[in-house]
Write a protein that binds this DNA or RNA. Structure first.
Length: 264
DNA sequence: CAACCTGTTCGCCA
DNA sequence: ATGGCGAACAGGTT
C-alpha cells in the first residue's frame, strides 16, 4: 500500500530499534528486493552497528547506523516494516530480519517489488542525497511545477502526478485524491492547464500530502468520509461533493477513480 | 478460474 | 537525445 504517509508510518515501526545494536542479520538473498544490494557486505558489516536515526523521503527510507552505514528501504507494492517481539521465522516473506538484543526488526514483501540498498560510509550515499525536493519542502515551488508541466505537456495528469522525480511519494490513490480536490479530469494533459488550474494543483498537492501525513503518518488513522479515498476502491461509489456517480477506469495504465460532474 | 493490484523499470517507437 | 506508452516483474486477493 505504501505511498507518502504510509511510508512514514512504516518507518516509525522500526523506532523500537533506535539506540540498539544489531546482533545478527538474516536475509533471503534470492528475492528480487536485493537486486542492487551488496548482500554479503551487509550481512558482514551490519552486526555490531547501532541504529542511530531514520528518515523518509517520498517512498524512500534510510536507516542510519553507527559507525557509518546506511540501509535504504523502498517498500514497492507490498513491502512492510514491523517490530516483532517473537522470532518472525514462520513468515515466508520476511526477507530481511535484524536481530536486536530483544526483538527483531522485520522487512517483509510478498511481491518483491521493493528494494533494499546498503552502503558503508561516513557520509550519506548518493541515492539518498540526490533525491528531488519533497512536496512539503520550501524547494517545491510553483515555478518548479510549471517547469514540469512544460516538459511533460502531452501526458495525462494521472501519469504526470505519478512521476517520482517531481512528486516524490505520490501514488495511485493520492493522485486521484489530488485531482479530485483540484477539480481536474485525470485524462486532461498538463499542457492544457491554465495558470489558475496549475495553482490549484499545486495547492491541493501540498494539502493532500500534509493531511495524509497527519492522519496516517503518526498512527494508522481513518480518513474522513469527505475524502475520495473512502469511496474509490469499488465500483458504484458516489462523489462526496456532488453525490453523483464515480467513474473507475484505467488512465495512464492505472486504475483511476474520478467524478465526471465535479472534475473538468 | 480469471481478473486485478497503493510501484518501478525496461524496451520500443515517434 | 527526449517524451510517452505498454509490458514485465511475482504472488496474493477478490
Amino acid at each position: 500500500m505504501p505511498e507518502l504517509a504510509e511510508v512514514e508510518y512504516y518507518r516509525k515501526q522500526w523506532n523500537p530499534g533506535l539506540g540498539k545494536t544489531i546482533k545478527a542479520v538474516r536475509i533471503n538473498s534470492r528475492v528480487r528486493d536485493f537486486r542492487d544490494c551488496p548482500v554479503k557486505e551487509m550481512v558482514r558489516r551490519l552486526p555490531g552497528r547501532r541504529l542511530e536515526a531514520s528518515q523518509a523521503h517520498g517512498k524512500q527510507m534510510v536507516f542510519q547506523f553507527e559507525p557509518g552505514a546506511w540501509l535504504g528501504v523502498h517498500l514497492g507494492m507490498t513491502g512492510k516494516l514491523r517490530f516483532s517481539a517473537a522470532d518472525p521465522l514462520p513468515d515466508p516473506h520476511a526477507h530481511l530480519v535484524l536481530a536486536l538484543p530483544a526483538g527483531w526488526l522485520v522487512f517483509s514483501d510478498p511481491r518483491q517489488f521493493g528494494k533494499i540498498l546498503f552502503e558503508v560510509s561516513v557520509h550519506p550515499p548518493h541515492w539518498w542525497t540526490r533525491l528531488p525536493p519533497e512536496i512539503l519542502s520550501r524547494d517545491f515551488t510553483l515555478r518548479r511545477l510549471k517547469a514540469a508541466v512544460k516538459r511533460h505537456r502531452n501526458t495525462s495528469l494521472k501519469s504526470f502526478l505519478l512521476m517520482q522525480r517531481y512528486f516524490p511519494g505520490v501514488g495511485n490513490w493520492m493522485a486521484d485524491e489530488i485531482l479530485w480536490r483540484a477539480r481536474l479530469d485525470p485524462r486532461r494533459t498538463p499542457g492544457s492547464l491554465d495558470d489558475g488550474e496549475i495553482k490549484a494543483l499545486f495547492q491541493r498537492l501540498r494539502w493532500v500530502c500534509r493531511q495524509s501525513l497527519r492522519i496516517v503518518g503518526d498512527h494508522w488513522g481513518e480518513f474522513p468520509e469527505s475524502w475520495l479515498f473512502r469511496r474509490r476502491w469499488k465500483g458504484g461509489g458516489a462523489c462526496p461533493k456532488t453525490r453523483g456517480p464515480l467513474v473507475r477506469e484505467p488512465v495512464g495504465g492505472r486504475t483511476t477513480c474520478w467524478s465526471p460532474q465535479w472534475q473538468k
